[in-house]
Design a protein around this nucleic acid. Sequence first.
DNA 1: TGCGCCATGTCAGGGAATTGTCAGTCGGCA
DNA 2: TGCCGACTGACAATTCCCTGACATGGCGCA
Lengths: 220, 220
Amino acid sequence: MRILLVEDDARIAADLTRVLDSAGYVVETATDGEDAWYRGDTEDYGAVILDLGLPGMDGLAVLKRWRANGRQMPVLILTARGTWAERVDGIDAGADDYLPKPFRVEELLARLRSIIRRSVGQSSPIVAVGDVTLDDRRKEVMVRSVPLQLSPLEYRLIAYLLHHRGRVVSQQELEENIYGTDGAHDSNALEVLIGRVRRKLGADLIETRRGFGYIVSASS
Amino acid sequence: MRILLVEDDARIAADLTRVLDSAGYVVETATDGEDAWYRGDTEDYGAVILDLGLPGMDGLAVLKRWRANGRQMPVLILTARGTWAERVDGIDAGADDYLPKPFRVEELLARLRSIIRRSVGQSSPIVAVGDVTLDDRRKEVMVRSVPLQLSPLEYRLIAYLLHHRGRVVSQQELEENIYGTDGAHDSNALEVLIGRVRRKLGADLIETRRGFGYIVSASS
DNA sequence: TGCGCCATGTCAGGGAATTGTCAGTCGGCA
DNA sequence: TGCCGACTGACAATTCCCTGACATGGCGCA
C-alpha cells in the first residue's frame, strides 16, 4: 500500500516514515503544498496523511483541489490546530479523518487502517476469502486456519489483492503498490511473485485476466 | 436518509434526535444492545450512531456481530471513554469514526456527513442491457448471469458500445476509442472483432447500421 | 571472514490466447 | 444484375503469462 505523507517538518516526517514503513506501507513524502498537490493529483495513493501547517499552498486548499478534481483517496488530516470548528472545516473539505497533535503512533496507525478499510469498501481488519484469511494487525495469512509463512513481498501482494478483492487489479497498479514508485519494469518479477504466492495459497485464489491483470473474487 | 441512533440516556437521545431530525435525517432509536443489534441486522440504515455505554450487550460487541454478519453500514461511535487505546479498539472493531463526549453537534453532523459520503461513493459501476451485464470492476460480462470472459479488445469494444448504448457509433469512433489514436486503418480488423463479440454475446445485441456504424439498443 | 540460508530478481523456454490479415461469401440496394 | 459494405473462417504472427533453473545479495552465525 502506497502512502503519501505531506509534512514539512523533516524530523517528524522521518519518524513517521520509519513507523509507516515498518507497518508495511510504501511511503512517499512531500514537503510543501505545491508538490503535495501535484503528486496527489497525478499518482495513485492508498491514502494521504496531510499536515495542515504547510509552506506554499495551504493544506486545506490542497485537499479541496484534489476533491474538486475528483480524487477519491482517503485523507487523514494531521495538525496542531484542534478546535472543533477547524475540525469541521477539515472534514467538510473532504478529509476522511482528523487527528490532532500530539498523538500516539498507535492511534495514527489505527485511523489509517480505518480510512483505508473504508475506502476499499470493507469494515473489518480481518479479510476472509474462501479458505484464506488475512489478519492485517498480525501480518499473517491463514489457509484453513493454518498460519502460513510468507515473505514480506508475498504478503504485500496478497494483502493488496485481498483488500481490493472483487475487482481486477492491473499489473502496473500492483507494482506501484508493492514496490516503490519505480516505473518501467521490463522484468517479470511480478509474475514470478504471483506464481510463488499461488504455490503457497492455492492456484485458484488469484485468477489471471489476461491483458487486464489479476483478480481475487469477492467472497468464497 | 434513515439513521439508527443507539443511546440509552433518554435525554441525550431526545436532544440528538431533534438535531438530526432538523438536519434532515429520519431517526430511529434503540436503547439497549439487544434491540440495537436486531434492528441493525434486519433493517437498512444509511448510518448508525452507536453509544458504547449500553445496558445489555456491549456496544463494541454489537458492532462486531454486525460486521461478522456482513453488515456494511457506516458506524459512528460515541462515547465518554476516550483513551487512545479504546479508540483503537473501536476503530479496529469496524467503526468508521469515533467521537468522544463531550462534543459539539456541529462536529457530530460533520462526521456523520463524512462517513455517509464515503459509504455512498463506492457502488460498483455496472451496466445492464437486456440479458447482458457489464461489470467494469471485474472486467467481465455476464449473459443471463453466466459470467463470460472476453479478450481485452473484445471487452473494450462491448464496453464502449454499452456505455454509449441508444445511439449509433461510427466505425471510426469505435476504432479511435478501442485502438490508440491512430486513424487510417485500411483493414477489417474491427469487423472481425465485432463478429467475435457477437459469437460470444449473441448476434442480436449489436445491430449494424449499414453505412453508419453500430448500435446497441438503449435498454429492454 | 567465510558459510549457508532466505528473499528476490533474471533469464530462457514453452504453451496458449489474442489479434491482424486475407480471401471468399453474403446481402441490401440502385 | 452489379456493386459495395459487411461478415466469416482459416491461418499465422505476436503477445502474454507461467514455470523451472539459476544468479545475486543481504544477513545471521560460527
